[in-house]
Amino acid sequence: MSSTTRRILAPLFTFLLFLVAWQVISWGLKVPVYLLPSPLDIWNGGMRLGPTIFSNSLETLTTILIGFALSCAVGIPLGVLVSVNRVTSEAIYPLIVFLNAIPIVAIAPILVVIFGTDITARLIIVTLIAFFPIMVATASGILDTPEEMLDLARVAGASPLTEILTVRLPHAVAFIFGGLRIGVTVAVVGAVVAEFVNANKGLGFLVTSSTAQFAIPTAMACVVMLAIISVLLYESVNLVHRVFFGWSIRREAGH
């Protein structure tokens, strides 16, 4: 067996074994469905929703993706700002740390009151939770730039902006993707929290509404869907990293 097939088949096998064990234990111990549904119950719960689960997934995915894009648009420039200049860093860092310290679950209902029940409040919630790891990672990457590379840029006569664009940011790419990997997974959490407090569609909404009706298998099916979305997004970030910024992975692996 080649190492590639093994890398795909081995975890798949473990996963199937886990599902089978769960199913067998559910049957054996006769666990009530409303306490812990078995994998087959969850499957049936999902099937009962039918295409609804996909339209709601799409709704949640939209919130995640737009919110994540906003997080990048906010987090990366902020990461640059707090790392290149001491004055900007001292001026804005405390505010950013304060914003990040706000418990997102606590502020979510307030945001809904302020911004109403449309997507705006949800996007703000996702961005608030996901920009921070992206910002911190960008800042670490910018600060990690080797001194010799900066010397090279300076001797070449680079302005501070050119230096950031041609040396610091490219160097920070490996770090930024580290932040994006964390950011995209917390964006999923943010989207679900947002839908808990304010939505009439989306997977987060389905989870709360199904639970309220004791339709636990349906709620679990939505949770499984969320997990799948989270994994797919994480892997997509990895894929973009590998395909477009392959050099930064090689360098990370190191000499």
Binding site: D151, L152, A156, G157, F245, W247, S248, R251
Partner: peptide, 19 residues
């Protein structure tokens, strides 16, 4: 007079930009 057009520098390490 400064900058690569007048003065060029070679460092101990090649310092090529890996990207």
């Amino acid at each position: 007079l400064r900058g690569f057009s007048e003065v060029a520098i070679v460092f101990q390490r090649a310092t090529l930009l890996p990207w």
